[in-house]
Nucleic acid binder design. Structure first.
Lengths: 168, 168
DNA sequence: GTGCGTGCAAAGACTTTGCACGTAC
DNA sequence: GTACGTGCAAAGTCTTTGCACGCAC
């Protein structure tokens, strides 16, 4: 299995963007006198392998597949909090029942459009969103820490499936 | 105490906008062969008295103040779900720990700017947000069901308080 | 009069925490 | 060698659900 190991390999092309992320986390930990442990590396590894949104539970399952060494649920939650504080992932809050996260590693966090039928979601990379945010915050004299923009809708595919088949 | 009763008074000026909401809910219930009970009326009443965002717990506390008759937590949650299905309130999801709601009664749901220091939030009523949403959805061929736009920042007041006092 | 609605308490889901042992520094 | 980190399981929150009685229709 091709695994984007973040702490050993240094020449892989696949991880060209991801590699610095490991350094970012290590520096963050060092600054706070925290340790870069096997478990934290594995969680970061699993996070880097995700696409778009993910949940703690999914990450835990992925960790069990990826590694022999089982990282505990508690450690996953604890590490997710650290990654959040390090600015590597953000909360996304699209579902009241469960916290969703996403990797942001220096990029602007993706805004999201979610299909209410299928749960399928696509990342939006529209600069107009941040511009709008900046304009509004400026008008009110606020300084910006972040934003979340989620569009709820029905994707074309779901609309096709949902539409009752014309009988005959 | 001045209470915007939704099921008895009909001439109050204060509830000119709110009154129809009761009808909306009653019709919704009738359409589904559900009953318009005292408890549901009281929950709607309390929801109408809220400003901006609210949580189930706060609503429950308010209900205990407003009425002698205690509405149970279970009924509050059940009614909030109905109100949501009726399109009277929406989920807001600004806090991973608790579900937040807001009254929308026919209006566009307010977007929100939240101060990360104080928790204070202000409602945004900027039409550019919906326009942006529409443009993006159209580009992707999606039909829109709703959206959420939240700006996280530091309000001017909080910035002032946070700033260390110039010694002397 | 019927069947939906309610209150209570217990269950359920997700997340956090206390404690003893392990390990990165 | 030390103090932070981990795993486990128990606790904690918010929310939902089962059941017997009550009330809107």
């Amino acid at each position: 299995m091709h695994s984007a190991s973040n702490n050993t390999s240094q020449g892989s092309e696949a991880i060209e963007i991801l590699a610095p992320l490991c350094s970012v986390f290590r520096r963050f930990l060092k600054d706070r006198n925290l340790r870069y442990t096997q478990e934290r590396a594995e969680v970061l590894d699993a996070v880097m392998a995700t696409e778009g949104l993910f949940e703690a539970e999914g990450l835990l399952l992925q960790l069990r597949e990826r590694t022999n060494h089982n990282v505990s649920k508690a450690t996953v939650y604890r590490t997710l909090r650290l990654l959040q504080e390090a600015g590597i992932i953000t909360l996304t809050l699209i579902d009241p029942n469960q916290t969703h996260y996403q990797l942001v590693y220096g990029r602007t966090p993706a805004d999201t459009m979610i299909c209410m039928e299928t749960g399928h979601h696509i990342d939006l990379r529209d600069t107009a969103i941040a511009q709008l945010r900046d304009r509004i915050a400026k008008e009110h004299g606020w300084s910006i820490k972040g934003h979340r923009f989620v569009i709820y809708g029905i994707s074309p595919e779901a609309a096709d499936n949902t539409r009752p088949k014309p009988s005959a």
